[in-house]
Design a protein around this nucleic acid. Structure first.
Lengths: 141, 141
DNA sequence: CCCATATTGTTTGAATATCAAACAATATGG
DNA sequence: CCATATTGTTTGATATTCAAACAATATGGG
């Protein structure tokens, strides 16, 4: 297999991986009482907490207008809070509430369970190698 | 690092990979004249073509009701066609039009370009290993 | 062969998500 | 001091999402 073919093959695998993870997310989130996009938001807030609207919108690839209404709905469900930014009165930061953190922990656990299942047949050094390659890819995107 | 920590680390990397790929998709699709979900549909049809509504909805993790309206919009834009299933008069299959295939080819090329960029520092055997690991993960989800 | 049950895709209403554009409040820098 | 830029919000139009109800058709058991 030439290098171009290797890259085509890998590209197809990445797409398939993304599709399947999307479908898995859909089915996992369906029973959580919040929407896919709301869970998506909580996933990011679980790692970047607190975060400014502009930055959060950037991470999600949506406009701040869209995010404003999304945060409205999450606030209504007591999953996040808007906190004034002491350094900039135009600006606010978004934080997870305790309930929001609970959603994040639960969802994280589902992800870890899925990951464990995916690498069940891997050796410890396989996992290390895969993580190393994935880290490089993630650092590039 | 214990095995549990390796899995947690890998899980976090998978989530981050998914988030970044989502954002990248958003920005790529923004200039294409169709929505993210419409491009998502074309991506799947590029590989599974033709496909039944029920099966396509399953792959996308949405209901057939949602898919019906999505396909209405894609048909309106002349990107797909509905074809009667000769074996089952209740059933139809969805196919990409020539214009739809063109969207698919273009989008695929963007994916390949991104993939090439991501593995620019990889050796040929690195790519083989990464593909092997990813294949196993994809086959498990 | 008949008919009860299941399946496929569609329609509909309500809620959520999306964008671009316009806006108010505030920050910045010349 | 003031022109310009930035941040988040609001709004209207469109898209996406679900569940429920429906019509047309397929299936399988009696």
């Amino acid at each position: 297999m030439g290098e171009k073919e290797k890259i085509h093959n890998l590209s197809d695998l990445i797409i398939e991986f993304y599709e399947k993870l999307s479908s898995w997310e859909h089915s996992i989130v369906a029973s959580s009482g919040i929407t896919l996009q709301q869970m998506h938001t909580i996933e990011i807030l679980g790692v970047h907490n607190p975060v400014k609207m502009k930055d959060l919108a950037g991470k999600m690839g949506i406009t701040t207008g869209t995010l404003t209404v999304l945060i409205d709905n999450l606030e209504k469900k007591d999953l996040v809070n808007r906190i004034p930014n002491p350094d900039d009165r135009r600006s606010i930061v978004i934080v997870l509430t305790e309930k929001g953190r609970e959603h994040y922990r639960l969802h994280s656990q589902y992800h870890r369970d899925l990951t464990a299942e995916c690498v069940a047949g891997f050796s410890a050094s396989d996992i290390d190698s895969f993580s190393k390659y994935l880290k490089k890819v993630v650092d590039t995107i």
